[in-house]
């Protein structure tokens, strides 16, 4: 059975790109969140195997969303996918509970490799 992924990003283009990469590599994208708040809500209702999470989003940023999801499910597997790759940001994300970090722009192979690692870990 395909692994079920939730994609959280405020940019339609980025959600479409990640969805195309993931579905083309045997994953199922079960939900798309446009901000951190939606990601928390969709995580609860969809219970995905993994989440890709942007950081800079309106309503609720991705790092706050990771912390909320980890409160609900301490075993949640979340990977940040962000253009903000500075050390502080990576540390904050990891401290909030993210397991990995991918900096935009990315190569499709990197997405597949990291999401595979995320759900296998």
């Amino acid at each position: 059975m395909s692994k079920r992924i939730l994609v959280a990003d405020d940019a339609l283009f980025m959600r479409a790109t990640l969805k195309a990469i993931l579905t083309g590599n045997g994953f199922e994208v079960v939900g798309e969140a446009t901000n951190g708040q939606e990601a928390v809500e969709l995580y609860q209702s969809l219970k995905p195997d993994g989440v890709t999470m942007d950081i800079t989003m309106p309503v609720m940023d991705g790092i706050s969303a990771v912390a909320k999801i980890k409160e609900i499910d301490p075993n949640a597997r979340i990977m940040m996918v962000s253009a903000m790759g500075q050390k502080d940001m990576v540390l904050q994300a990891i401290q909030a509970g993210a397991r990995d970090f991918l900096i935009k722009p990315f190569q499709p192979d990197n997405v597949v490799e990291k999401v595979n690692n995320l759900i296998a870990a």
């Binding site: 940019a11 283009f13 800079t56 253009a83 722009p105």
Partner: peptide
């Protein structure tokens, strides 16, 4: 917009 976001983030 995402192109701008990626340049700003980097």
């Amino acid at each position: 917009a995402e192109l701008g976001n990626m340049i700003s983030g980097n």
